[in-house]
Simulated assay, not measured.
Amino acid sequence: MDYLQLNVFEAAVQVFALKVFSRTASPTRKVVETPIQCSTGAFYKLFKKQAYFLPSVCGAVVQTIGLADGNRSWVNTVGSRKVIEILSADSCGDTAEKFKYVVEAVDDRSRKITYKLLEGSLLQLYDSFTVTLQVTSGSTVKWTVEYVKKNPSNEDPNFYLNLFPTINATVDIYLRSND
């Protein structure tokens, strides 16, 4: 009887270890890159310090954005938190999804900001979900999305990846017309 109990315990530990190991798998990385014609500095500045303009600039995608958890400044610094409502993947019309995120990293020299999702429907599908914006000196905007699926059968977040070119284009047009 002791032998049977020991084997059952070992089997349970092995299954648990497999589950833990699969959740620590390396994230999937997808990149969306588009050219822009406006000033790269102005584009980066809008996302770094003036994100409150996004609903008026590209309201078809970004419906609202607000400060969260006691933040008083729109400047993206490490640890700052915001809530954003964007076009929903499940929408047939104009419904929006709300997400809360934290700024995980800011590199002004390379014009890069990394956002980590804290709350929202995507966290039902993914263990982690981060988005990095980088405005390159070559007049391109690169969005890198990294995520770890909770279940291998979950879909990739292609709907959200397809929103980035629209955001880039509308911000580019806005900044060129307001220079």
Rank of each mutant, 00 (worst) to 15 (best):
L4C: 03
L6H: 03
L6G: 00
L6I: 12
N7T: 05
V8G: 00
F9N: 01
F9L: 14
E10T: 03
E10I: 10
Q14R: 12
V15K: 13
A17N: 12
K19S: 07
F21V: 02
F21R: 12
S22P: 00
A25G: 01
S26K: 15
P27F: 02
K30W: 02
K30Q: 12
V31A: 05
E33D: 03
P35V: 01
I36Y: 02
Q37H: 11
Q37D: 10
Q37I: 00
C38A: 08
A42G: 02
F43L: 13
Y44E: 04
K45W: 01
F47R: 04
K49T: 09
K49R: 09
Q50W: 01
A51V: 06
Y52N: 13
Y52H: 14
L54A: 08
L54F: 03
S56F: 09
S56P: 00
S56H: 13
S56W: 01
C58A: 12
V61E: 06
V62P: 02
T64K: 15
T64V: 00
I65F: 06
G66Y: 01
D69T: 00
D69V: 00
D69Q: 15
G70I: 04
N71R: 07
N71E: 15
R72D: 13
W74V: 02
W74A: 08
N76G: 03
N76M: 14
N76W: 02
N76V: 01
T77P: 00
T77G: 07
T77M: 10
G79N: 10
G79K: 11
G79H: 09
R81D: 00
V83A: 11
V83W: 03
V83N: 09
E85H: 13
L87C: 04
A89N: 06
D90N: 14
D90G: 06
S91R: 12
C92M: 08
G93Q: 12
D94W: 02
A96C: 13
E97C: 12
E97R: 05
K100L: 14
Y101R: 03
D107Y: 09
R109W: 04
S110G: 00
I113V: 15
L117C: 13
L118D: 10
E119D: 15
G120R: 07
S121W: 00
L123P: 08
L123S: 09
L123F: 05
Q124C: 05
Q124N: 15
L125Y: 14
L125Q: 12
Y126D: 07
Y126M: 07
D127G: 01
F129K: 07
V131A: 09
V131M: 11
T132P: 06
L133E: 05
T136F: 05
S137L: 09
K142S: 13
W143S: 04
E146D: 11
E146R: 11
K149L: 10
K150H: 05
P152G: 02
E155I: 03
F159T: 03
Y160S: 09
I167F: 05
I167M: 12
T170L: 12
V171R: 10
V171D: 08
I173Q: 15
I173V: 11
Y174S: 08
R176N: 11
S177E: 14
